[in-house]
Design a protein around this nucleic acid. Structure first.
Length: 650
RNA sequence: GCUGGCGUAGCUCAACGGCAGAGCAGAGGUUUUGUAAACCUCAGGUUGUAGGUUCGAUUCCUAUCGCCAGCUCCA
């Protein structure tokens, strides 16, 4: 007899040899989702798995990340089955689940066309309808190889040969067999709604020296409704693309003549950037930072001493010669801040030193990876370096984390995920240093009662780090903030401070960025707000719209008053219809429109229209100004709510 | 960088071997307008660039630059 423990802490006793699905019988799932697979002692398995010892069982449904993985993994198999049914010569490579669906790579003589994908999707639907059961078959490595050799699946043979385990498993559905660790859902009919998304080239094992395979992406959901919602989300993401909005709203451009990956900021985009940076600077002053500035180039030797030439050269632009001395465009700001540190003798009383700079750096990126503001060749880091004593580490890190959260919240981000990366295989610094540093990061996180995920071995070679990801309004995750400890540079540059004992000690250096890159952060903001910036960030906050020539002087008077309060306004005095003026202001995503006609001139009021929300009542200009100033101060976007106005009927 | 797709007016797109067009934007004019597009006229192009094939190339071929999707890497 064996005892099974359930997530609600209940226990039941079964005969040894019971299957997972039998053990789940009568257990009420927390959702009305179908049971897909099970997690036994933390490992995902098929429902047909035979249980022979005391275990903890956890049902897997589409609601959990693990459940989705299983679901999408099976979907990838269905995709592969369909592709081979339509194109028998296509050879299988790999087909894993990913964050938002799955893909499968095939060796095929040509790229798949959109027509191919349609044909494949039809076949997928047939396979779902046929409801083939997925059967797990265990083989020894030796026996498995001929199975795939016979099928001409060379990549599968290669994979089997690279597996350490002497026994391998494969899954069969209909006449389709794939090498696979599993687990899977029990039959192809369990997949509810399926969409073949796109095809693209991908290298075998991600290495460009290997042959190019044809990858097909897909996504699936239990219901058609969820699939439709997902597809709407994809459309919405396209609609919010910062490259498209950046052009439409006149924020920035990239020109072929200037060069790829180099951003030209137009007046409106530059205003938004200015507002971001001003806010950033104010916050830094409040939190005890000092500002430094550093040049864009430096002697190449500086980068030799820092070690960047050894480990970062492929991302650096080539050296330039200045009076026969090699100089280098900077890919990082840290060596400069270090030189400032070194410019005088430092006492332990001086520490921590917190030096911040919006430092523009230049990095060589391969042409194929450039992408709008997200991936560029020249960008501005919101950089800071903190030099402190080991004992100050935890406090410093804790205050950086708090600073990060408060800053990102002010930009409208609410959801954070925190990752702690520990020592990788190749690293500098002693075990002792790593231990202390990692413990300091942990205690900072625990001090603030923050839950986090540990990424073992994912730290940078010079020290452990904390990365913070935000989620935008579409639920997409972005990593902006990073806090990295560094033992390497202080060592390489021989940094020291004089301790209470009168002897030199080595400071620890913290590299940190809140926004990451101002360019990239701006891109994220554009997509997060769909270009409709909250009032505090909007390049133009108010547009005054006159009904006719009669209100021109009143409108100019309004403009003067708005400007006097530091508000950014434009007036539309043209002899155009109100509908057109409104349409253009809406398209420009200006938060507030002030409509003025003779009635407003007489009453010395303005009729307010809020972006996308419509009319928001008529009020005295002063009242509006006060409300807007309050809204800007709060960084909110909802101080003035639209009303169904009755006092301006016409 | 690699694989595939795409470069036509400021923008969005037609024409696909035979005189390069539309809408929006722009300029000039008419209209003085009450909450998301008034009307008329005009102007706007070495079809990314350089070669080639052809009687003739925006269209076909080659190279090159750029953009897009993906691979890889990362902020």
């Amino acid at each position: 007899m064996i005892e099974i423990k359930y997530p609600d802490n209940s226990r039941r006793v079964y005969e040894s040899g019971v299957t997972a699905i039998e053990a789940m019988k009568g257990y009420t799932l927390p959702t009305d989702r179908a049971l897909l697979a099970a997690e036994i002692d933390g490992v995902a398995v098929d429902l047909s798995t035979v249980l022979t010892s005391n275990v903890a069982i956890n049902p897997l449904t589409f609601d959990s990340a693990l459940g989705k993985e299983v679901y999408w993994h099976t979907s990838a198999h269905i995709l592969a089955q369909a592709v081979q049914a339509v194109f028998p010569s296509a050879k299988l490579a790999i087909g894993p689940p990913i964050d938002t669906g799955f893909y499968y790579d095939f060796d095929f003589e040509r790229p798949f066309t959109p027509e191919d994908l349609t044909r494949i999707e039809e076949e997928v639907h047939l396979i779902m309808k046929e409801d083939y059961p997925l059967k797990r078959i265990e083989f020894s490595q030796q026996d498995a190889i001929p199975v795939f050799q016979k099928r001409g699946e060379g990549y599968k043979v290669e994979i089997i040969e690279s597996i350490d385990d002497p026994s391998v498993s494969m899954y069969q559905q209909g006449n389709f067999i794939d090498l696979c660790r599993g687990p899977h859902v029990s039959s192809t009919g369990q997949i509810g709604a399926f969409k073949v998304l796109s095809g693209a080239g991908a290298y075998w094992r991600g290495d460009e020296r290997n042959p190019m395979l044809q990858r097909i992406y897909g996504v699936s959901f239990p219901t058609q409704k969820e699939l439709d919602q997902h597809l709407i989300l994809l459309e919405e993401a396209k609609r919010r693309d910062h490259r498209k909005l950046g052009k439409e709203l006149g924020l920035f451009s990239v020109s072929e003549e200037t060069g790829p990956g180099l951003i030209l900021w137009h007046p409106k985009g530059a205003m938004v950037r200015h507002l971001i940076e001003t806010f950033w600077r104010e916050q830094h002053i409040k939190r005890g930072y000092e500002f430094v500035y550093s040049p864009h180039i430096a002697r190449r030797n500086l980068w030799k001493q820092s070690g960047h030439l050894d480990f970062y050269q492929e991302n650096m632009f080539a050296a330039m010669s200045v009076e026969n001395n090699p100089y280098q465009l900077k890919p990082m700001n840290c060596p400069f801040h270090i030189m400032i540190y070194k410019s005088s003798l430092r006492s332990y009383r001086d520490l921590p030193l917190r030096w911040a700079e919006l430092g523009t750096v230049y990095r060589y990126e391969r042409s194929g990876v450039l992408h709008g503001l997200f991936r560029v060749r020249g960008f501005t880091q919101d950089d800071a370096h903190i030099f402190c004593r080991p004992a100050q580490l935890a406090d410093e890190v804790a205050s950086i984390i708090k600073f990060t959260f408060s800053t990102l919240r002010r930009f409208g981000f609410e959801y954070f995920e925190i990752f702690l990366s520990t020592r990788p295989d190749h690293a500098v610094g002693s075990d002792e240093d790593w231990q202390h540093a990692t413990d300091s990061l942990k205690s900072a996180l625990e001090l603030l009662d923050i839950s986090y995920t540990t990424d073992p071995g994912e730290g940078v070679f010079y020290g452990p780090k904390i990365d913070i990801k935000i989620r935008d309004v579409l639920g997409r995750a972005w990593q902006c903030s990073t806090i990295q400890l560094d033992f390497n540079l202080p060592l390489r540059f021989g940094l020291s401070f004089i301790g209470p004992d009168g002897k030199p000690h080595q400071p620890i250096m913290i590299h940190r960025a809140l926004l990451g890159s101002v360019e990239r952060f701006m891109g994220i903001l554009i997509e997060h707000f769909a270009g409709a910036f909250p009032s505090w960030l909007a390049p133009i906050q108010v547009k005054v719209l006159t009904l006719g020539e009669a209100q021109t002087s009143y409108a100019n008077d309004i403009m003067l008053q708005l400007a006097g309060h530091g508000l950014r306004a434009e007036a539309d005095l043209r002899s155009e219809k109100m509908n057109l003026k409104i349409r253009e202001a809406e398209t420009a995503k200006i938060p507030y429109m002030l409509v003025v006609g003779d009635k407003e001139v007489t009453a010395r009021t303005v009729s307010i229209r809020k972006r996308t929300k419509g009319q928001a009542g008529t009020m005295k200009l002063d009242t509006f100004i006060e409300m807007l100033k309050e809204e800007i101060l709060e960084h909110s976007s909802s101080a003035i709510t639209p009303t169904l106005s009755t006092n301006n009927s016409n």
